[in-house]
Amino acid sequence: MGWITSYRLRLRRKRFKLRARRKGLQLRSVRNRTNQIKPGQILLFCTLRNEDVRLPYFLRYYRDLGVDHFFFVDNGSDDGGAEYLADQPDVSLWSTKGSYKSARFGMDWLTHLQMKYADGHWTLTVDVDEFFIFPFCDTRPVAALTDWLDSSNIRSFGAIMLDMYPKGKISDIPYQRGTNPLDIAPWFDAGNYMISRNPGYLNLWIQGGPRARKFFTDRPKKAPALNKIPLVKWSSSYTYISSTHMLLPRGLNLVYDTAGGEKASGVLLHMKFLDTFGAKAKEEMARGEHYAQSAEYQAYVDGLKDSPELWCKWSEKYINWRQLEILGIMSKGNWA
């Protein structure tokens, strides 16, 4: 890499951080419990809006995984979710009425908080509909993974976003607060992912899954990116660039091996396609606060009208992480 590229990326990183600092002014602290955080604890960062129904299970899942402290940015919820979060003993909550879109889809707010609180901690950055799966997650807490990553001098850990869906229409079974969404939507696409490499930021760009084959067949290039790097040993100088797909400095994006080996990697079970989805898609369409003029949501709204089912004969039903490992969606790498 030439020093010019290197310098250009450095400037870009600085710019993102400056921007985050500026957007951070929009945040209003609702409940700050960050003084509870001890060195070495694992933190989770999340932005949300009107997701109250998902919160209890989300918190339970990540507490069981071993997350020690939660950071939430509430972007103007009016469904009581913010009040629920404020009462949780391990949650720090900020709220803002600012524009989600002009805050780089919430990333500026999170970057601001991460700069301030996450330095030196392993941080997990996820959405409320994403559930992190890593090798041995049924027998080992996430701290086992982060300790191992530390001892291997690895700073970032990749996890592909795996879209989960129900059999039958999405609206068939209503999601109940506090229940495991996996019970409703246990199906996924096992082997239709398309990968290319992003030469600028060095990350892999992965597309595919049910969304690509159902909503983006005519313009596959526009299909949503599924590559994510949600788990990072944070340093104040880092910043996510586009959602959690990639980071700067770009060395953090090298979560894959190029010599034929496999690095350890995980999965984010993406529980977007529950009965709540239809309403969400319409709402987000109206707000226009999402990526590329909410084109993704437009495609869903169109797609859901005439083809309400994502399930097909070759859909795979989720069992456990070992199944995903055998299918080649994630890998243990050399962790045993």
Binding site: G158, A159, I160, Y193, I195, R197, L204, I206, N227, V255, Y256, D257, T258, A259, G260, G261, E262, K263, A264, S265, G328, I329, M330, S331, K332, G333, N334, W335, A336
Partner: peptide, 28 residues
């Protein structure tokens, strides 16, 4: 055996598999 396999997985990987953490420039 388990640990030897883990090392193989890391260094050789599964040929013909392209995924988020295996992206060989040139297949063996």
């Amino acid at each position: 055996r388990i640990f030897a396999k883990a090392v193989d997985r890391r260094t050789l990987g599964r040929p013909g598999l392209y995924m988020q953490s295996r992206w060989p420039w040139q297949e063996r």
